[in-house]
Amino acid sequence: MNAPRNPVPAARLREFIEDEARALGFDEIAIARPDAGWPAAPRLKTFVEKGRHGTMEWMAETVERRAHPNALWPQARSVIMLAMNYGPDENPLSLLERRDRAAISVYARNRDYHDVIKGKLKTLAQKFAARTGAEVKVFVDTAPVMEKPLAADAGLGWQGKHTNLVSREFGSWLFLGSIFTAADLEPDSPEHDHCGSCRACLDICPTNAFPAPYQLDARRCISYLTIEHKGPVPHEFRPLMGNRIYGCDDCLAACPWNKFAKEASEAKLAARDDLTAPAIAELLGLDDAGFRIKFSGSPIKRIGRDRFMRNVLIAAGNSGDPALSPHVEALLADPAPLVRGAAVWALSLLADPRDFDRLATVNQAGESDGDVRYEWAHAMETA
Rank of each mutant, 00 (worst) to 15 (best):
E147P: 05
S172H: 11
L174K: 10
L165Q: 07
A152S: 12
F139S: 02
T163E: 08
G119H: 08
F128D: 01
K137D: 12
R168N: 15
A143Y: 11
V140Y: 01
F175L: 11
V138H: 01
L121E: 10
Q159H: 13
W173T: 07
L121C: 11
L156H: 09
S167E: 06
K120L: 12
R168M: 14
K122D: 14
A154T: 01
L165W: 12
G160Q: 08
T123Y: 10
V136D: 05
A125P: 03
H162C: 13
I117P: 00
Q126E: 15
V140T: 10
G133S: 01
I117K: 01
S167Q: 07
F139R: 01
A125E: 06
F175K: 02
A143S: 13
Q159L: 15
F139K: 00
W158K: 06
L176A: 06
A130R: 12
V145W: 08
V140W: 03
K122Y: 13
L121Q: 05
R131F: 08
P149W: 02
G171T: 11
P144I: 04
N164G: 14
T163S: 06
K148L: 08
A151C: 00
A134G: 00
V136A: 07
G177P: 00
T132Y: 09
G171E: 11
G133V: 04
A134Q: 03
P149T: 03
K127L: 14
V136R: 04
A154I: 02
A129V: 09
V166D: 08
V166S: 04
E169K: 15
F170I: 09
N164C: 14
F128Q: 00
A151H: 04
K137E: 13
E147K: 03
R168I: 11
A129P: 04
G160Y: 11
L150T: 03
W173P: 03
E169Q: 15
V136H: 09
V166W: 06
D141A: 02
K127H: 11
T142H: 05
F128M: 02
H162K: 02
T123K: 15
T123G: 13
G133E: 00
E135V: 09
F175R: 01
H162L: 11
G157S: 09
S167Y: 11
L174H: 07
G177N: 08
S172R: 13
G171D: 10
D141V: 00
H162E: 10
A129N: 11
T163M: 08
V138K: 01
L150M: 09
G155Q: 03
G133N: 00
G155D: 03
F128H: 01
S172Y: 13
H162T: 12
T142S: 12
V116I: 10
G160P: 04
F170M: 09
L150K: 02
V136Y: 12
L124S: 06
K122A: 07
V145R: 00
A152Y: 07
G119S: 02
